[in-house]
Amino acid sequence: MEVLVRLLALLVVLLVGTGLRASGVLDAGRTDTLNAVAYYVALPALIFISTYDQAIGELLSFALVGGLLVVLFTTAGLAWLVHRRRDTAGRRSVAIVQSYHSNLGYLGLPLVAATFADPVTAIASVILGVVTLVQVPLTILVLSTSNGAGAELAEELRGLATNPVLVSLLAGLAVGSLGVAFPGPVVGGLDVLGSLALPLALLCVGASLEVDLPSVDYGATGSVVALKIVAMPVLAWAVFSALPVDTETFVAAVVMLGTPTAVSTYVFAAELEGDPEFASLNVFTTTLVSIATLFVLITLIT
C-alpha cells in the first residue's frame, strides 16, 4: 500500500505540472528555469550524495554493464522489428527510440532514492551514467540516419563530457574510491537538494506533456508502451536473474529499465526531423501507464 500511495503521489505532482502549464503559471520560460534547477542542481546533488561514500569497485561490475547493454540493444532490436513498417521515416524512427530510451534521470533515480535503501540508489546512479553514455548517442544515430538530419554525432558526444549527470557521477565515484571525508553540513545540504530532484522533475515532465487526441495512432503508441514499460523490464528481470549480481543490483536494474520514455526524446525528435507530436504523445502515455507497471514491478521485487 505504501508503494501505491507513493506512486499515486508522483502522478498527482505530474498532473499538477500539466495543470500549471495549462493555466499559464508554468510558461516556457519558467519551465526552462525549473528544468535547469532540476538538471544542473538537484539531480547532480542526488547522484553525488548517493555515490560519494562508495568505492567504484563496489558498484561497477562487468555483469552490470554487460546486462545493461544486452537489455538495451535487445530492446532496440525488437523495436526495429516491430516498427520498421511505420508509414513515415519520422514516425518510424521516433517509435524505435522511444521504445528503449528510458527516463532514468528525471524519474528512475529519484524514484529509486525515494523507495529503496542507499545501496540500491548508489547502483542506480551508476546505471544512469552507463546507460546515458549508450542510449543518447544511439538515439541521435537512429533519428539522424532515418530522417536524413545533419546531426554531428561527434559534437553530441563532446557534449556528454560536460553532462552534469556524468560529471557528478564521476566526482562521487572518485571521492568514494579515494576515501575523502566530507563535512556533515555539506552532506546534509546536498541531501536536501537531492530530495528536490523528484518533485521538480515531475513538474517539468508534466509541464512539457502535450496530447493531440485526434491525431493519435493507437497501434503505434500501444506498441511503444508495450515495448518500453512491459517488454524492457521483463527482459531486464530475465537477464539480471541469470547474471551473478547481488539483490541491490538486480532491483536497481529492473526498476531503472522499467521507467517510461524520456522527455528528451521529444526534444531529439523535434531537432532531428522526427515526428514531435507523436513523440509527445508517447512520453505522456508511457509516463501515465508506468505508474501502474512500476507499482507491479516494485511490489514483486520487495
Results as ranks from 00 to 15, higher is better:
V3E: 13
V3T: 14
R6W: 03
L15V: 13
V16Q: 07
A22H: 15
G24K: 07
V25F: 15
L26T: 06
A28Y: 07
R30C: 07
T31Y: 09
D32M: 10
A36G: 09
A38D: 07
Y39P: 09
Y40I: 03
V41A: 14
A42D: 02
P44W: 11
F48H: 07
D53W: 00
D53T: 04
D53R: 13
L60W: 08
A63S: 13
L69Q: 09
L72E: 05
A79W: 02
A79K: 09
G90R: 13
A95R: 14
V97C: 15
H101T: 10
N103P: 11
L104I: 07
G108M: 08
L109S: 12
L109C: 12
V112E: 12
A113G: 15
F116S: 09
I123G: 08
I127W: 06
G129S: 13
V134D: 02
V134Y: 01
Q135G: 03
Q135Y: 08
P137W: 09
T139I: 07
S146R: 11
A154I: 04
T162L: 08
V167H: 10
L170F: 15
L173H: 12
A174T: 10
A174K: 10
G179S: 08
F182N: 00
L190C: 04
L190F: 04
L190A: 05
G194Q: 02
G194M: 10
L198D: 06
L198F: 10
L202Q: 01
A207D: 00
S208F: 01
V216C: 11
V216W: 01
T221R: 06
L227E: 02
K228L: 03
V234Q: 05
A236D: 00
W237L: 10
W237T: 05
A238E: 00
F240K: 08
F240A: 11
S241A: 13
A242T: 01
V245N: 05
E248S: 11
E248P: 00
T249M: 05
V251N: 09
A253P: 03
T259C: 11
S264K: 02
V267R: 10
V267W: 01
A269T: 01
E273R: 12
T285G: 00
I291M: 15
I291P: 08
F295G: 05
I298P: 12
I301T: 05
